[in-house]
Each structure stands twice: as structure tokens, then as C-alpha cells.
């Protein structure tokens, strides 16, 4: 059944798009990742303009992270104070991001910039995960969690001013590192259409030294609001949010994530991480090839909406 996407301005098959949302939701549930960094490149491969793919992906993240944060809220694993501080940075990061995004769009470089950002991030994360899971598979055990939190350890972070007390995280640290982290995530959210959990979660554990129990819930809390704000910024400045496409992906994602979580519970952690690393690297190579190989037509034509 064909459906015409109003903003992406292309006909798509409804079931294919719901299926894509479900497949990525499945991976997302299985690996416990947001899925934005897999879905956005796939939308671009299908011919959705990168600016529309990124903006629409933000809308999809609102749905998936709302669902996640509500579960964590019930379990009491959200540090609201830390979330609020991260959010301050996130809002400013999004505003800075949209300024960069629109300047690049006007210069005709936004598609390249989005693709390049993906190649760099997917390459770095996929490479690290590949290396780590390969080692873990060889040694028959997981090395994840080897870097445990040492409550007494003081780093340069503790020397920064503007200290705040975060009761839920049992931390007394400067507000500057979380605001900076939030800013970075806001920037990534606007430009890449990702939640940023894959950077935020490790940063919270190793950099801010938050207890692992509240890390996921707090990052989801921040992602929900930053993604909502990002969606608004894209909708207002570029009109690139395709609500129909977002809805199809959300419906598929909601179903896929349930099955993914069930299968994920049965598989070995190292095997899953290895499989995800391979997938991430394949997407990275595919995106990179489009940048490096001579284009079929070096000229591109962009129409302006006169209506």
C-alpha cells in the first residue's frame, strides 16, 4: 500500500516503513540502544532527504524515550536535578546546533556534513565496540563493568566551581561538566537526529561518575526533552518534520522493541555487542563509500517550494 509522504515528498510503501521501524526497534530493544544512529542512515539510503531524515528521527526519539523514561520514573531511577542541569546545556546545544545546521543548509553543505558526522561517529563507536567485543569473545567473558566507580577518587572535575549537590546520584560536583555534556548532546541531536545515549551513558559513568542505576533513566529524561525541543526547532525553521513518516516508524518501533528485548534477554552479551558492532561498521562503510566514490551525476538539483 503506497502512501505519499507530505514533507519528504516521496511515495513509500506503508508496510515497508512500519517494518523498517520494527526492525530498528527490534535492534534497539535487543541491544538497549536508541536506534537513531541506525534508522537515520537507512532513511537516507532510501532517498529521504538527509535534513528530513534527521528532523523526523528526532520525533521518533521523543516517542521511544518517553516510553523508556516512564518505566524508569516508576522504578525511581531518574535523577531529576541532574537531568535538569543536563537539560539546560541541552537547550543551548540545540539552539547552537540549529544555527550551524541552517548555515550549512544555506551553503549547500548540510547533506555532506550529516553524512560525515555519521561516518566519524559510527566508525569510532563501531570500531571500539568491535575491538572490545572481539576481545571479550576470545577471553570468554565480558570486560564490561571492569572500570568500576570509585567513590573516593578525586579528579580535576572536583576542582571546578559552581558545585551542586545531586542527592539521587550521591554526587557533589560542579554544574559545569553536566551542562557541557548536555550542550554536546543537544548539538548532536540537532545535526544527527540521534538521542545521544551512546555518548551520554558512558560519559555519565566514567566522566561524571554517576551510579549506574540512575544513568539510563536520567539520560532518557534529558533525551526526551532535548528531542522534543529539537523537533520544534526543525519544524519551525526548516519545516522538515514529516509527521506521517514519524508515525509509521513509531508504530513499527513500538512493536519491534518488545520482541527485541525478549530475544536480547536470551542471547549472550558479547555476541550481541559483536553483531551490533558489525552492523554499525557496515553502515559506516556504506555511508563513507557514497562520499568517496565518484557520484553518478556530479550535479544536484534542489527545487524551492513556491507554494
Amino acid at each position: 500500500m503506497e502512501l505519499y509522504l507530505p514533507i519528504a515528498e516521496m511515495p513509500v510503501n506503508i508496510w515497508f516503513m512500519v517494518g523498517l521501524g520494527a526492525a530498528v526497534g527490534f535492534l534497539s530493544g535487543m541491544f538497549g540502544v536508541g536506534g537513531g544512529f541506525i534508522l537515520t542512515p537507512f532513511l537516507m539510503f532510501l532517498g529521504v532527504p538527509p535534513a528530513v531524515a534527521v528532523a523526523t528521527q528526532s520525533t521518533q526519539i521523543v516517542a521511544s524515550s518517553t516510553s523508556g523514561v516512564l518505566t524508569h520514573f516508576r522504578n525511581g531511577t531518574v535523577d531529576f536535578k541532574m537531568g535538569a542541569v543536563l537539560l539546560v546545556g541541552g537547550f543551548f546545544g540545540s539552539i547552537a546546533g540549529i544555527a550551524v545546521f541552517n548555515a550549512l543548509k544555506a551553503a549547500g553543505q548540510i547533506d555532506l556534513f550529516i553524512a560525515l558526522s555519521y561516518v566519524i561517529f559510527l566508525g569510532a563507536i563501531g570500531g571500539l565496540m568491535f575491538w572490545e567485543s572481539l576481545g571479550a569473545l576470545r577471553h570468554g567473558g565480558s570486560k564490561v563493568g571492569a572500570l568500576r566507580r570509585e567513590p573516593g577518587a578525586h579528579t580535576w572535575i572536583h576542582g571546578l566551581p559552581l558545585k551542586m549537590r545531586f542527592h539521587r546520584s550521591k554526587l557533589y560536583i560542579s554544574a559545569i561538566p553536566p551542562v557541557f555534556l548536555g550542550f554536546l548532546i543537544g548539538l548532536l541531536s540537532v545535526i544527527m537526529g540521534v538521542g545521544g545515549g551512546f555518548i551520554m551513558v558512558p560519559a555519565m559513568i566514567y566522566f561524571l561518575r554517576m551510579p549506574t542505576a540512575v544513568v539510563i533513566g536520567t539520560s532518557l529524561f534529558q533525551i526526551t526533552f532535548v528531542a522534543a525541543f529539537t523537533t520544534m526547532l526543525h519544524a519551525i525553521t526548516n519545516q522538515t518534520v514529516d509527521a506521517v513518516l514519524a508515525l509509521l516508524l513509531i508504530v513499527g518501533g513500538v512493536i519491534g522493541v518488545q520482541f527485541g528485548m525478549r530475544l536480547g534477554a536470551r542471547l549472550r552479551n558479547e555476541q550481541m555487542r559483536f553483531a551490533l558492532a558489525v552492523l554499525v561498521l557496515v553502515i559506516c562503510v556504506r555511508l563513507g563509500m557514497d562520499l568517496v566514490l565518484p557520484p553518478a551525476d556530479p550535479y544536484s538539483v534542489v527545487g524551492e517550494n513556491t507554494e
Partner: peptide
């Protein structure tokens, strides 16, 4: 769009 997405997330939760 944001409200619709949040609603979908809430329903799925």
C-alpha cells in the same frame, strides 16, 4: 508532532 510522539510513547509504556 511532539505531543503525538509523546502520546505514542506513553501508550507503549
Amino acid at each position: 508532532a511532539v505531543l503525538l510522539a509523546a502520546l505514542a510513547g506513553w501508550v507503549s509504556a
